[in-house]
Design a protein around this nucleic acid. Structure first.
Lengths: 135, 135
DNA sequence: CTATGTGCAAAGGGTTTGCAAGTAG
DNA sequence: CTACTTGCAAACCCTTTGCACATAG
């Protein structure tokens, strides 16, 4: 991979983001510094960077792929309320768990967890208090 | 859901298939008995049947969705060699494992395992024997 | 009768690709 | 010099949708 300004900007955008951005979100961010970059270039670079394990692709069924700068083994939860992506750090290695399963030679996996993020849980709690306050 | 001949044929096609068919594979199958059915109808019915838990949708990142007539909790492995879908029956409930994780309220998940199916493993073994036979 | 379901064709949305021009090494 | 990269627009692929007609209950 020879250097390109565009690829470096894409990498930095993923690096600095805390929201596990989609290709389009990376595009919008990079455009602030490189207004002529094309979405196709962003896609090509995200693909290359993840193939070379410099960033990680986060697959979300029915949604665009997201990208994560954290390479250490961890999982992702999609909040079913607001759609945000939350990092989950299991106590045990799921890779080890799955590859130990009998019945087939399992070498990898894609996992998407679903649930409620802390923010939405808090808001929901407050809403319930509101509901009962006037009883 | 009121009865329709088309929906019944779609349901039967999934029921009788052992390959976890995609929408298009279901379409090809149903067309044998109902040549005028449209792909849109197959999609609409697969959606309805899975929303009503009569069949299960199997999400495969980067590929079409597949459909499974088995509703009992189990997982799926995609063979990285031939692309087939293999049922995997874990010893423990992953649903229970994930919902017990700390850090968030996890309520569901989508899991795709990757590995080598028995057929491909056998073929690979034979190929290796071939390779060494003439040494 | 009316709410659902159907077939068709067109639209949709995210992602990839062909091409000619630009650029790193 | 030449292999890799870019921007643009068009193509792709799977899936959904609008519409007028058909059908179950």
């Amino acid at each position: 991979m020879k250097y390109s300004r565009q690829r470096e900007l894409v990498r930095e955008a993923v690096e600095k983001s805390s929201i596990h951005p989609t290709a389009d979100e990376v595009y919008q961010e990079v455009r602030k510094r490189e207004p002529t970059i094309s979405l196709a270039t962003v896609y090509r670079n995200l693909n290359q960077l993840s193939e070379n394990h410099l960033i990680r692709r986060v697959v979300v069924p029915g949604d665009s792929d997201h990208f994560d700068h954290t390479l250490k083994e961890h999982e992702h939860m999609i909040c079913t309320q607001c759609g945000c992506v939350v990092d989950i750090w299991p106590q045990v290695s799921l890779q080890a768990l799955f590859s130990g399963m009998e019945g087939a030679h399992i070498t990898g996996y894609d996992l998407t967890l679903y649930g409620i993020c802390d923010d939405c849980a808090r808001k929901r709690g407050e809403a319930e208090l509101q509901d009962t306050a006037h009883v």
